[in-house]
């Protein structure tokens, strides 16, 4: 029993606490250009952490809820202690990615909360990942061209504004 518990303890210590959730697909994929990260198309969302107080569940799945007028709680925010926040959105099947649109905190909150430095990486089966790096973003809704064939998903890696947490309302990935 003790050995079994120690095995469990080793697994527990090895866990890094990252978040992962796969949404069930609600409808078939459209054929034309569309946002294939939308929640109803069944994406998997992974995140390094999230701010998770009782009434401030800034859950990573809000990144793909497609809300046009979200309240301030309906955004992803990284945890206070997370020094290197990241988010991944993975799709059920590969897509030809054209551009990524990020709705930053400034879209609904003060512009000071908008993430300024981040990188967007296209994830492919071959590992030949296209990357776009943004060093001084000011846009509340930022559109980034990232042509990438047969992409399985994207990964966003953030550098925090000073010691602040990262806030992001929505991630849209357009292509076909």
């Amino acid at each position: 029993m003790a050995v079994a518990w120690l095995f469990g303890l080793a697994s527990f210590v090895a866990a890094d606490g990252h978040f992962e959730a796969a949404l069930p697909r609600q409808r078939a994929q459209p054929t034309g250009i569309h946002n294939f990260s939308l929640w109803e198309l069944g994406p998997t969302v992974r995140a390094s952490s999230y701010l998770s107080g009782w009434n401030e569940q800034h859950h990573p799945l809000f990144l793909v809820d497609g809300r046009q007028w979200p309240g301030v709680v309906e955004k992803w925010a990284s945890a206070q202690g997370d020094r290197h926040p990241w988010v991944e959105i993975l799709w059920q099947k590969p897509h030809d990615l054209e551009r990524v649109v990020l709705r930053h905190a400034g879209w609904r909150e003060t512009p000071a909360f908008t993430a300024r430095r981040y990188a967007i990486r296209c994830l492919t089966a071959t590992g030949q990942d296209a990357v776009v790096t943004i060093a001084a973003n000011e846009a509340a809704v930022a559109a980034h061209e990232l042509p990438c064939r047969q992409a399985r998903g994207i990964r966003l890696e953030f550098e925090r504004n000073d010691d602040d947490i990262v806030r992001l309302f929505e991630v849209e990935t357009w292509g076909r």
Binding site: W39, L61, F62, D65, R67, W69, G71, E74
Partner: peptide, 18 residues
Amino acid sequence: GRPFPQLQFEPSLLGNPL
């Protein structure tokens, strides 16, 4: 038992399809 968001009821949140 699920990783999906749980939040205190607010009428405005009913509009969120999640």
